[in-house]
């Protein structure tokens, strides 16, 4: 496979197509629109389906239909659009339909702006929609990961029959970096539960309704067991210079790229700083952060939100060590300088 220089928003589509994605249903929204553009360009060439839906709501319900038909299907949106999609995501989770949703988070609340934020963490990670469900959430911090997670998301979605969200921000979507493309996926899992308009699948029903209280309770318990297995087996994270770190900066997405540079600067001054980056926001790497409490004396969450992920960091730390927060909002990305200053202040 070749190497190509491209935007994160385009890389995720190419990764998805290499993963065997054959359908895209979406609605335009900045800063996620390039995903729809790339899907409109490449999916039909690859024998797939692209439809610009009449709304975000229609788009996610088309995803529901395509996933019910056993297709590898994706959609993408941002902030307000994801809000509209959450009902449909809940239906997908309830009916156990695998699908991939890319969120290129923008500034909120309300119409906000089109700059990068990480303010939709709770929406994406904590369910967002109604009911006791979770989605696997992958947080890329490079264009390469946008492509790679495009592939990984479909595998995880099919493996667990669950929606998977790729949670990026406007920055990761808009930036360009070289990508080494992986080989196309050739073997796909069987989906005997899907409906395809065939004799074999005639017996199947795709539904999230369970009228009987006990039946719905059993269904919920089954879902919770699935999420427990995901928490046990699918935690992913990256550590940077944490071995001897006295302060650990916890961050994801674009913030982690800035933090990485800040760590190098701090280390050059002899300050033992390290970075911990959750790659899966659900399942969150609680256990590893808890272990890191034995080494580090302080944690600092660097987050482009009011500390939505910081709540999870504090749950992991369980009060054993101080957890600090450095927030930015409104489309502003932390500067290396302000991260540096905050660490100096904490460690002094």
């Amino acid at each position: 496979m070749g190497k190509q220089f491209l935007k994160g928003n385009e890389a995720v589509v190419k990764g998805a197509i290499l993963a065997g994605c054959t359908a895209y249903y979406g609605y335009p929204i900045t800063p996620a629109s390039e995903i729809a553009h790339a899907a409109a360009k490449y999916l039909p060439l690859a024998g797939g389906t692209f439809v610009q839906a009449e709304s975000e709501v229609a788009a996610i319900n088309m995803v529901y239909g395509a996933a019910g038909a056993g297709q590898r299907v994706m959609t993408a949106s941002s902030g307000p659009g994801i809000s509209l999609k959450t009902e449909g995501i809940s239906y997908c989770a309830g009916a156990e339909l695998p699908c991939v949703i890319v969120s290129i988070t923008r500034g909120g609340p309300g119409l906000g702006n089109i700059g990068p934020e990480q303010s939709d963490y709770n929406q994406l990670v904590k369910g967002g929609g109604h009911g006791c469900y979770k989605t696997i959430v992958l947080a890329p911090n490079s264009v390469q990961e946008m492509c790679d997670f495009g592939l990984m998301a479909f595998d995880l979605a099919d493996k667990y029959r669950t929606p998977v969200i790729i949670a990026a921000d406007g920055f990761i979507g808009q930036m360009m970096e070289p990508v080494n493309f992986p080989e196309p996926v050739k073997v796909f899992p069987a989906k005997p539960w899907a409906i395809k308009g065939t004799k074999e699948t005639r017996k199947n029903v795709i539904s999230s309704i369970e009228l009987d209280f006990d039946d719905l309770e059993r269904h919920n318990i089954k879902l919770q067991k699935k999420y427990a297995i995901i928490e046990e087996q699918e935690v992913r994270y990256e550590e940077y210079r944490t071995d001897d770190a006295e302060i650990i900066l916890v961050c994801y997405g674009i913030a982690s790229r800035v933090v990485q540079s800040a760590i190098d600067n701090l280390r050059a001054e002899g300050i033992k700083a390290g970075m911990f980056r959750p790659i899966t926001l659900f399942p969150f790497p609680h256990e590893r952060i808890s272990q890191l409490c034995d080494k580090a004396s302080n944690f600092l969450t660097v987050e482009m939100s009011n500390g939505q992920m910081n709540d999870d960091v504090r749950l992991s730390v369980e009060g054993k060590k101080p957890v600090h927060l450095l927030s930015r909002y409104g489309g502003n990305v932390h500067t290396i300088k302000e991260i540096h200053a905050k660490v100096i202040k904490i460690m002094r």
């Binding site: 359908a23 249903y25 389906t49 439809v51 839906a53 709501v57 229609a58 788009a59 319900n61 088309m62 995803v63 529901y64 239909g65 395509a66 019910g68 038909a69 056993g70 297709q71 299907v73 009902e87 449909g88 239906y91 009916a95 409906i195 395809k196 308009g197 065939t198 699948t201 005639r202 199947n204 029903v205 795709i206 539904s207 999230s208 309704i209």
Partner: peptide, 30 residues
């Protein structure tokens, strides 16, 4: 879907045409 012995899918309120769109496009012979 209690009654019809065919492939069945239940849709969210109002969204049946969106679900139907994707089903048909996934399997044009259906």
């Amino acid at each position: 879907y209690y009654y019809f012995d065919v492939g069945n899918i239940q849709a969210a309120h109002g969204r049946a045409p969106a679900v139907a769109t994707a089903l048909k496009r996934a399997n044009p012979e259906s």
